[in-house]
Nucleic acid binder design. Structure first.
Lengths: 188, 188
DNA sequence: GACTATGAATAATT
DNA sequence: AATTATTCATAGTC
């Protein structure tokens, strides 16, 4: 139980470990916020953050190709390694965007822990496609849809069962494992 | 008093007026989140969102020039109007980033409403530079620092006076008027 | 465009 | 990395 649950002001965090932790936590929140903004309004977003290790970490909503294209359309004639840098940005983009490694690990965990309980829930049977379907058979866009569909279902269940908040529902905790919307970025 | 304080799930908002409202509200939150992330961790961020009207709206933390430069370094040889588009992006960037019009209006309002009460508060006298200084004399970076300093002060006051949350403090409401961190962007 | 109840994000803690 | 008390963003309201 956190005795002090809020940071004292908004000031640079000197402690390196704590700073890194905060960075990743808040980046997650940022990604979710962007993801939701897109889902709610359809506004496309591209975000590029600089990590501690001087690398870039990017995030974009689906169909953000025009923005990304604009971002990558540069071909500075004076600098030779710019192309290489941009390539690195794209690679990082892909890596960070999809968070495949993390999601993959989480996926297994999720299947083991929640699949059985999922089958007992008739409330969400009409969404069986997402609940029982093989996750590895979905591509990035479908994963994205899945995440939002499950988020909606979770909300629906919460709304219908307000007296039973902490019920062991499979979808109630699922979105944790697919928190981000992957971007469809054409790779040359 | 909101009877229902939460949206039903995360689904595309069909109502156009409501959608636009949500977009702007959340964009503000996003900007603040990015601003804070930079203040806390020093991570530089550039964000480009697409508005409803097909224009771009951008936001960046100070010292994000390298990222912005990369963004603008493009000079597509095949398309003639790309330069023009980029210029538009920059202009929008400036406009949206600094939110000068809004801030200017808010500034006057703030001065009129809060300056007198500000002078009575000795608690924050050591930050007199920011509280009493002429706002128009500060450049973008100083405005940014000012905003965060005031945020910190607000937090400090809240922490020291937990029993008096709604006290009519000048700084308690001030940050509303400088919510965003302007980016230092070199303009050619 | 301002207010406020509510839910979501997250800082501290284990 | 899991948990939870607390703050904060914001949906709904006027």
């Amino acid at each position: 139980m956190p005795r002090k649950a809020r940071r004292f002001g908004v000031k640079f965090i000197e402690d390196e470990r704590n700073r890194g932790l905060t960075f990743f936590k808040r980046r997650s929140g940022l990604f979710k916020a962007v993801s939701d903004l897109f889902a709610l309004t359809g506004a496309r977003v591209v975000m590029v953050l600089e990590c501690e290790n001087e690398r870039f970490s990017s995030f974009g909503t689906p169909k953000a190709d025009p923005i990304v294209d604009a971002f990558l359309s540069g071909d500075a004639p004076t600098e030779c390694d710019t192309r290489e840098e941009q390539k690195a940005v794209i690679i990082n983009l892909q890596n960070e965007l999809f968070q495949l490694e993390k999601d993959k690990a989480m996926e297994d965990k999720w299947k083991k822990e929640n699949m059985l309980r999922a089958k007992e829930s008739q409330e969400i049977s009409r969404k069986a496609k997402y609940v029982y379907g093989k996750v590895e058979d979905l591509d990035a866009t479908e994963l994205y849809e899945m995440y939002h569909e499950l988020s909606r279902i979770k909300q629906e269940i919460n709304d219908r069962l307000p007296w039973c908040r902490s019920m062991p529902s499979n979808v109630a905790t699922l979105p944790m494992y697919f928190p981000y919307a992957p971007s469809q970025i054409s790779f040359q």
